[in-house]
Design a protein around this nucleic acid. Sequence first.
DNA 1: GGCAGGATCATACCTAGGTTTGGGATCGCG
DNA 2: CGCGATCCCAAACCTAGGTATGATCCTGCC
Lengths: 223, 223
Amino acid sequence: MTGRPASPSTLASAEEPVVYVIDDDASVRVALSNLFRSVGLRVEVFGSAHEFLQSTLPNVASCLILDIRLPRLSGLDFQAELAKADIRIPIIFMTGHGDIPMTVRAMKAGAVDFLTKPFRDQDMLDAVTTAIERDRVSRDEARMLSGLQARFATLTPREREVMALVTSGLMNKQIAAEIGIAEITVKIHRGHIMRKMAAKSLPDLVRMAELLGIGPASGGQQT
Amino acid sequence: MTGRPASPSTLASAEEPVVYVIDDDASVRVALSNLFRSVGLRVEVFGSAHEFLQSTLPNVASCLILDIRLPRLSGLDFQAELAKADIRIPIIFMTGHGDIPMTVRAMKAGAVDFLTKPFRDQDMLDAVTTAIERDRVSRDEARMLSGLQARFATLTPREREVMALVTSGLMNKQIAAEIGIAEITVKIHRGHIMRKMAAKSLPDLVRMAELLGIGPASGGQQT
DNA sequence: GGCAGGATCATACCTAGGTTTGGGATCGCG
DNA sequence: CGCGATCCCAAACCTAGGTATGATCCTGCC
């Protein structure tokens, strides 16, 4: 199973997940690489965090395995850096001599697992399975949300305002009074909103508004 | 979650939060008790998990502090037991000689923090603040949800069915065709639903359905 | 048996939502 | 300066949603 699809598909969940391993010890890289390949997982290994950052990451479900004690940058600092750069990827830490505060910090920051060396292969594989699944879900959600946001971005300011009021449950006439325009104009805005957002029904639009975090305070507040 | 205070108030967030401490070492109990009292927090101390379980817990924001090494029951097992008994309370672990796997297990199970003795007072206070706030939010949500569920329980089977279809975005005539009744009957059911659920608008009802986890999965919805 | 609650439906009537057609005003930009 | 985008509105017209009145039927229960 080495066939690498060159297809420009956009569905992360439809492609082969990847496991990234960062470790300065070549023997660790080889061992983990073999372990993952033995269960049919794609693996990419790196000798340092720097190398990892310079590679271009495909948009597929993935996870990152790294030692808490990296050469230049500590694993925890690297985790924080990824978060700051908005690179969200589930992390599994390994450590030979970590301590509890480190563990707590890593787990609080969202690490999937924190394995002490030597660990059982099965523990690592379980952690990777969890991490990949978590990333798959997270990517699916992110993709859906970005589609929504793209459509929302095509709305004019007025339309966004009306959408917030519509999804909050106000009637057209109330919206008209609220923003000082005629009811017929609200209806027209509303029609545009439904078409631009590709909402099949009002409940549909309401759910979109929920995902977009649109409350009556989001668009504009007056009076 | 059955302990109901006799007080007329129902808002946990409006009452004084409580910190529960379970430790078999009296000096620890005293020290922590003093620490929390010094910042104006209510404290209840217990010498064992058993004692804690036998007390009736008031319905206020709270958190639990316990040593990973409890006399009879380990802190981790106690955590698991609470979860199994559906007693949700944020837990802060303390340990004198814990290890990393313990820490990981506790954090994965939702522990707020895992402090190694000796810890700085401020670290404990920070953890408690986080835990109390988390519990406050969680209790507020639970209370809101239980109100919703109570109202949903007053719906007849048919009304529940119609509610699922309405909130999924179908028109009355489509719903009528779907379940084989007249459109007028759907309208009547719909009116009952809005009144029983105390929904002020369709968007309102849609959001309730979201919180209740009601999908178009006709028939029954089991999670 | 009779009563309550649930489910069904018809008629009538009203309100709310939505589109089309057609028009007008403002504003930024090439 | 004209073009396009945005925002505004009216009249006409149609569909969808919602309520009230009154009625039938069934079922479980006292």
